[in-house]
């Protein structure tokens, strides 16, 4: 005789945790990618795609010590590999997102313009260290490179960026 399976009606606890995780991490991650990519829409694309990937595997990702680090790494990888807008999900997300973006602020423009002159690896190292506050070791882990490489990127990127910001000021 077959057994009846009981039904849990409410959304399971892990999904409530995802909602809170999303609310707590979206803005910070989006700002990181905005300053790296220089384009808010593109930053939103990669961040939302990263959260979509997290949701699909949330039972696994939610159990990590730092699910935020997983999402951050996915988002940055998407940005590095030139995640573009052709994807079905991205088009879908863009249709859902009706947001008025204010005009550029001079501070933002100066920083983004200065960062845009750096090679991408140097730019990532500077943003991850000075904005995300990651250590050299953490950046090396995220980038899958040696710590010495990160130090080199950071040193060169910092010198070039500081010179340009100083020139602007």
């Amino acid at each position: 005789m077959a057994a009846e399976v009981s039904v849990v009606v409410a959304r399971a606890e892990p999904f409530r945790e995802f909602d809170e995780f999303y609310a707590a991490n979206y803005q910070g991650l989006c700002l990181q990618l905005l300053v790296y990519l220089g384009d808010l829409a593109e930053a939103q694309d990669v961040v939302q795609e990263a959260f979509c990937r997290a949701l699909k595997k949330w039972q696994q990702i939610g159990a990590y010590d730092e699910p935020g680090a997983w999402v951050r790494r996915v988002a940055w990888n998407l940005a590095i590999h030139r995640f573009r807008r052709q994807g079905t999900v991205t088009r879908f997300l863009r249709r859902q997102r009706l947001e008025v973006v204010p005009g550029p602020d001079p501070t933002r423009v100066a920083l983004i313009a200065a960062l845009a002159t750096l090679p991408p690896n140097h730019r990532r190292a500077v943003v991850l260290h000075h904005m995300v506050q990651l250590s050299i070791a953490e950046i090396a882990q995220q980038e899958d490179v040696a710590e010495g490489t990160v130090k080199s990127w950071l040193s060169r990127g910092r010198a070039a960026l500081a010179a340009q910001l100083d020139q602007e000021a």
Partner: peptide
């Protein structure tokens, strides 16, 4: 920039 970046 933070005030203009909202989580959908």
């Amino acid at each position: 920039a933070a005030p203009s970046v909202h989580a959908p």
